Simulated scan of single mutants.
Amino acid sequence: MAQFNKLLGIKNMLSPHKWEIGVSAGSYYPSLTQDFWGNDIGLAYDDDHLGMQFYAFSYHIDEIEDPEHVACRLFSLNLLLNGALRVAWNKNFAVPVEFTHFALCDGGGQHSVHAANIENNPFSQNADIDKYEHEATPASGRLSSRIFNLCKKDEVLRSLIFQVGLISLNSSLETIMTWGTLYKIYDSVKYHSKKNNYDFLKLGDPGRINQFTAACNSSLLLGVYARHGDMGWGQPAAAITDINEATSLILDLANKFCLVHIGAQHP
């Protein structure tokens, strides 16, 4: 633990971490531990005789005593982390970062990460988390960590990143739900672009976006995947019915919106 804090450059003003988080992720994770900056979430790994072990820490859970509350907060932070990574990288990834379990750093039983509800604002109010960032690795130094960090104070960004974090194509049921999630992302970007006088038409190809919405609204095309039930509408002339193509389109829309929004609201 001391070595981990030293590597991150965390100063003495912040207490040692209380909880350690077990992580499951893809082969990109070791590189991500170096590329995700700031004090919000510390990502780390060990490579020893047991193989490669992924883990993480967060000051946003260290002040919590109740494991049930920790489990709920970690579930929400996990969604935001994956959402921030997808938007920053402008792509979906088959194996997202998953917080699987957690335990006290000084010993104790493991607890699973789960939640009946998403915690809408899963962040500590401890201002020292930002105040004592290491100057060489501030959250603002990487787009993914900057997006995550700004979610603490920007409700528009936080709501959108939560939605992106919910994208999942790992099962048939999750794919069905993801069509609706993608439409929510589209709705959010369109609404907040209009509200903030961003040029929505410059954020994506209007023709392809219309093909996406046409598919989502057509039960003739998508069946149970559609946003609506039977409405008596005819089949659209052109539509995007491939979920991977639709996901790429909407992630690109979210990426462009976030860049414009951050530039305008958090220069």
Rank of each mutant, 00 (worst) to 15 (best):
D205G: 09
Y225S: 07
S248N: 09
N126D: 05
A215S: 12
E245I: 09
A215P: 01
N120D: 02
Q34G: 08
H192V: 00
L182N: 00
E63P: 12
R146M: 14
T181S: 05
G141T: 08
V113D: 01
G204C: 13
T213D: 03
L222Q: 05
L253N: 02
I240C: 05
T137E: 03
C258R: 01
I147E: 09
G9K: 06
S76R: 12
A264N: 07
D40N: 10
A127T: 14
Y186V: 15
T100Y: 00
K153P: 15
Q34E: 06
I209E: 02
L7C: 11
D62P: 11
F57Q: 00
G83C: 03
K91V: 03
E65A: 15
L77A: 11
Y55M: 02
A246D: 04
Y225I: 01
D154L: 08
D187A: 14
I262E: 07
P122E: 12
G109N: 11
S193I: 14
V23R: 03
S145T: 06
S172Y: 08
S31G: 08
D48V: 11
A103W: 01
D35Q: 07
G108H: 08
N120Q: 10
S219C: 12
K184C: 10
G9F: 06
N255T: 15
R158I: 00
Q34T: 13
Y59H: 11
N120G: 07
V23W: 01
D46E: 03
A264P: 15
L203C: 07
V70L: 02
I250L: 10
L220M: 09
M231W: 08
E119R: 11
G109C: 01
A71F: 06
N82D: 05
D40W: 04
V224W: 04
R142D: 15
Y225H: 06
F93D: 09
A214C: 01
G223L: 07
A44W: 14
L173T: 03
V113T: 02
K153T: 11
A226M: 10
L79K: 14
Q34N: 12
H192S: 01
E20F: 15
M1L: 13
S24E: 11
D199A: 15
F162N: 04
K131H: 13
F36T: 06
L249C: 12
N12H: 15
L150S: 07
H69F: 07
N217W: 04
M13A: 13
H228F: 15
D230E: 14
S58F: 11
D106W: 04
N12Y: 14
L221F: 10
Y28S: 14
K18T: 14
N210S: 05
H60Q: 05
